[in-house]
Design a protein around this nucleic acid. Sequence first.
DNA 1: GGCATATGATTCGGTCGCCGAATGATATGG
DNA 2: CCATATCATTCGGCGACCGAATCATATGCC
Lengths: 140, 140
Amino acid sequence: MTDTVGFLLGKLGQQVNVRFAGRLAPLGLRPRHCAVLELLSGGPLAQLELAKAIGVTASVVVDMLDELEQLDAIRRVRDAADRRRQLIELTPTGRELRHQTLSLARQNDEELLAAISPAEAAALRHTLGRIAAATGLIAK
Amino acid sequence: MTDTVGFLLGKLGQQVNVRFAGRLAPLGLRPRHCAVLELLSGGPLAQLELAKAIGVTASVVVDMLDELEQLDAIRRVRDAADRRRQLIELTPTGRELRHQTLSLARQNDEELLAAISPAEAAALRHTLGRIAAATGLIAK
DNA sequence: GGCATATGATTCGGTCGCCGAATGATATGG
DNA sequence: CCATATCATTCGGCGACCGAATCATATGCC
């Protein structure tokens, strides 16, 4: 059991999130917000698009955006072409926050991968990416 | 961000757990119970020992054990040497359940690793184990 | 031996993140 | 112009977890 990849992934993933959350806390962010900032860095998206991409329901997105709006990291803009939709766009503050989270994520990686060789780390990254893509477990 | 190992681990781990939970549901179990069954297969343990090993508080262990007791998978036995402690031991039913969960975990792995070569899978298992050990993220 | 203090299990209340159903506004097709 | 669909939002609830309080038992100290 403890030697299955599934178990290790599950437990490690959980712990990694906790650790990352600790790093993020000073910014007033939690891990889930990072994916949002990341996605928005490619350009504005509607809330339902965000929900799909992240893999949560629309109501969860509302909450996350409320929080990000509080931090002045995003803006909701009514889509002129379809006034039901809110287009979410990054503010300059949001862009700045995204850079910081990126840096924290890399810091996190360094700590996580300190015990293994760079080659092994690269292989790991590659393998995880393959699995994620193959199993469709991470929305692309 | 989405290319950091930490992010991939976190997201994948989460999803893997959800998937595993689905397989487990017919047995009336959830992922967290598996660790308990696994730990107990090595012999009886007190509840606080379980809590430490799993990384949750004592009150959570109480709940989990209540559920496992309901399924007749475990028994609570007062420690004669220290009557405050409950020694938790697997029943025959518990042992059987453990075998089933193990088989499900392996099935889960097969599906997860279908996209990569056996060699790559072995490397992955090895690397994850190293990281878990080095970072102390998984209680041993 | 008797008492203060520590420790194990348990209960209880609260928090957090998530979901699903209901709602209101807007769009779209007949 | 109305029926129906879709987007964002609100609301109630659930499951997993924590921390404080409680009760029984153990242990150290006088």
